[in-house]
Amino acid sequence: MTRAARLARAAPYALLLALAGWLYVLAGRIEYVGPPEHIGPGFWPRAILGLLALVCAWEIARSLALSVAGSARAILQSLMEAAAQGEPAAAPVAEASPGRLAAGMGVTLAYVLLADTLGFFVATAGFLFGFIAVGGYRRWGIAAACAGAGSLAMVIVFMKIVYVSLPLGTEPFRSLSLALLALLGVR
């Protein structure tokens, strides 16, 4: 294992160790009112953080030390752990695509950010269309129909049957949402 690979393996643990250390300090400063002989509200999180830090430190040490000899033991260990994780359920069909993932996350975040402004119906229709497109589906007519009909179905189910109060949006989308609800008979 190269030095870069060792550092890459240790990096997430180092990050978690730093986070644990910072939170441990914060947990020691929690203000509370209670009898001094009792353990305070910081004890439980500090116990967890202590364990977290210990495990992270162990993994960092293992990452850096085990592979020094380029050792077969390190390779064996990682192979055993990979095997124990189990085989993936189904072989992926397409190549891994960070771009597709970023686009999917982007559409999801946009939905969360805009739902309050656009209202549930418009935001959901847009999200469904966007996410279906990002997933690689290219029959645009069907995708648009799924998005529109799906969003409308959700409005009917959740506002008319299950009585969940979904966001209406701000003007002019609010008027559109209210008109749609009036059309569906939702008061």
Binding site: I30, E31, G34, G40, P45, L49, C56, W58, E81
Partner: peptide, 29 residues
């Protein structure tokens, strides 16, 4: 990996401590 499972568990336990604690009513994280 047992270590990774332990880390995952600790993070889950830590998430559950966020907010007001039920014993003293103190605010945490």
């Amino acid at each position: 990996s047992v270590a990774n499972a332990l880390i995952s568990l600790c993070l889950g336990l830590l998430i559950s401590t966020v907010g007001v604690d039920s014993t003293y009513g103190a605010e945490r994280f």
